[in-house]
Simulated assay, not measured.
Amino acid sequence: MAYGEAWDLQKRLVGEIDRQERGDSLLLVEHPPTYTIGTDRHPEHLLYGPDELARRGIQVFQIDRGGDITYHGPGQLVGYPLLYLDAAGLDLHAYLRTLEEGIIGLLAEFGIEGGRKPEYTGVWVGDEKIAAIGVKFNRARTRRGFVTSHGFALNVKRGVEAEGFQGIIPCGIAEYGVTSLESLTGSNFGIEEIGERIVPHFARVFGYDSVVNSEENRETLAR
């Protein structure tokens, strides 16, 4: 799904969740080559000029999530949790840690020890980042709380590290590299396979009892 289309879809669904016309949702997509620049706004961390971006077919979006610049593209599973969070006892940092925990649980399925770096958001394997996280908390209009948007980008396919990340300083972090699930395991995976496997971990860490995951739902979202 094109990035702009997914962003518009998020905004529409955030409104529906706010108005209680829809339940909490998790969008799982794969994007064409895209750089997104969050609210930290460090344009110097984009290393390619307009000509090189055009040659490589990479679009650039300045968006409303937190954080700096990152890459989305083929070989990466991107997840957008759209969840209502009640304002009572709300801990925004705990939400980020819970997102990380779901990805760490998925990695453990493959014998990979994912972890955190205290100074950075995201999921790491040693000194290499495998999943970036950047979110927005949209203040609800009809009730007392927030609806989340944006989310995580998990590197799955081997080669995604060099394909897009070489054109940026990812999240403004120059001293560490990035890695992928295939590079760490030596196995090959489909993006949809990993998408299906992450859903139970997401449901577990956020405390959902049941999940609706169907082709019909996918077609409804795509329209």
Rank of each mutant, 00 (worst) to 15 (best):
I169H: 01
R143W: 12
R158V: 09
F165D: 02
R55H: 01
N213W: 15
G164H: 05
G177R: 11
R55I: 02
G145C: 13
G111W: 10
G195N: 04
G49C: 04
E21K: 15
G102W: 06
E163Q: 15
R143H: 08
P33Y: 14
G172L: 00
D127M: 09
E5L: 07
E163I: 14
G15V: 03
R218W: 14
G23N: 11
L13C: 00
Q59A: 15
Y48T: 11
L46I: 01
G134Q: 09
P33N: 08
E44A: 10
E101M: 14
Y176I: 11
F189H: 11
P81C: 07
E44P: 05
E128F: 02
L77A: 07
L181F: 12
L13S: 02
E163R: 14
A131W: 07
G164F: 07
G114T: 14
T220A: 15
K129S: 01
V123G: 05
Q166G: 03
N138T: 03
G67D: 07
A87P: 06
R55C: 03
V160W: 03
L154G: 03
G122E: 00
E109V: 05
E44N: 13
V29A: 04
R144N: 07
G186P: 03
G102K: 06
R22S: 06
G67P: 08
A131Q: 13
E175W: 01
A131I: 03
I169G: 05
S214W: 15
G67N: 12
F137L: 02
Y71K: 03
G126K: 08
R141M: 14
Q62T: 13
P74A: 01
G159K: 02
R223I: 11
H150Y: 13
A87V: 01
C171I: 07
I112H: 06
G57A: 01
D24H: 11
T179W: 02
V135W: 04
Q59W: 11
K11P: 09
L90V: 13
M1H: 06
L27I: 10
L90A: 02
N213G: 12
V78G: 00
Q166T: 13
